[in-house]
Amino acid sequence: MLTHEEILSRLRERFPDAVLEVPEGMIDFTIVIAPQAWHDVALFLRDELGYDFLTNVTAVDWPDRFEVVYHLYGVQAGHPLLTIKLPVTDKENPTVPSVVDVWRSADFQEREEYDLMGIRFEGHPNLKRIMMWEGYEGHPLRKDFQNRTFTYAELEPSRKATPDW
């Protein structure tokens, strides 16, 4: 079990520029990390601090930025929840480094965020849509996504526009 200060000091010592912010008043202890340093920080967290369990990868679409959120635990070391946030200001083409090689559990979840939120994870070995079908346009979980109905022809091009029955 590490205290919050310990985690922060060790992180700052090793990566002076990586920790962007430690927001106050959060329910869960949160550290905001610079996206470009994330892969190295992840390796450090796993190998040296003992956060061996990445439970949740998700993203939030704020008006001015995307936030990629990671929830970490230490199973063998017994660490409580640590939330890592990566702010992505480029809303046109959001990109963060993938951590699949660090925690395998990021595999499907990164694909899911890519599919539904449209965030590219650089270095993911198999970054394709997971929930929506191939060829689907748009990213449903974004706030500007417009719900619309589909015609049969769109869903299945081989089918007729109106079914026979």
């Binding site: 061996d52 369990f53 439970t55 925690w103 395998r104």
Partner: peptide, 9 residues
């Protein structure tokens, strides 16, 4: 080890 790493619970 793989199980922990892969988020299996």
């Amino acid at each position: 080890k793989d199980a922990i790493n892969a988020g299996i619970t």
